[in-house]
Design a protein around this nucleic acid. Structure first.
Lengths: 115, 115
DNA sequence: ACCTATTTGTCCGTATGTATG
DNA sequence: CCATACATACGGACAAATAGG
């Protein structure tokens, strides 16, 4: 199985799932287009509730790493064309920064600090 | 009560709550430092489950509009010093962009396009 | 320094809705 | 139309954190 829950780990179950799936995507063992198991199925396999898996999937979707659609399941986003998603994130970020009164150059600086 | 659920509305309950609280913050009827009612209390007042309110609160926290802490409750962020939150958002954004292979200058460009 | 009550946080189980292949 | 799989919502339980005594 792709995922293993560590009962001794203090982190929440959903977060453990998120981290392991993130890692699998990062190191290539999950590639773009690959389909994750249905939430219910994975949940049974690793011994957690389906909600917990769905919550993890939801976080990965919010992070832009997978897409979720009914019946189709959870599909890893192909690494090439998530540019649109990144642009959307950039838009939301700049919007918030402007809401808080930052100027364009301040926003750029804020990003530059992280690089 | 601050919030009213419209059963005829097709939008999810948690989203209705989010939108109304957002509006209240935007128009000043909720100001920085104000404390929202405990989730359980608000839930009972408007006739939904406490989980549903907590989910709405969580979204507002992710949006940087409120802070949530056990026992302290949900407090509206003062509009002045959310700089730390913006830095956190910037960090997450740049991290994602890097995950997708963008260089530092490409990330800056992406932000600049939005300004 | 300790205890208690309050409030968020996580997780489970279940039910029902919604979209889609 | 049907089966599948995510989405929302309910209810209950317990854990974790913290404000206040």
């Amino acid at each position: 199985m792709l995922i293993r829950i560590d009962a001794g780990d203090t982190r929440p179950l959903y977060e453990q799932i998120v981290l392991q799936l993130r890692a699998a995507i990062a190191d290539g063992s999950l590639a773009g287009g690959d389909r994750l198991p249905p939430a219910k199925e994975l949940a049974e396999a690793i011994g957690v509730n389906a909600h917990t898996v769905l919550r993890a999937y939801g976080e990965l979707r919010d992070a832009g790493l997978i897409e979720l659609r009914p019946r189709r399941g959870a599909v890893v986003v192909s690494p090439a064309p998530p540019r649109q998603h990144l642009a959307e994130l950039a838009r939301r970020f700049t919007e918030q920064a402007r809401d808080h009164g930052l100027s364009a150059s301040e926003i750029i600086d804020l990003i530059a600090e992280q690089l």
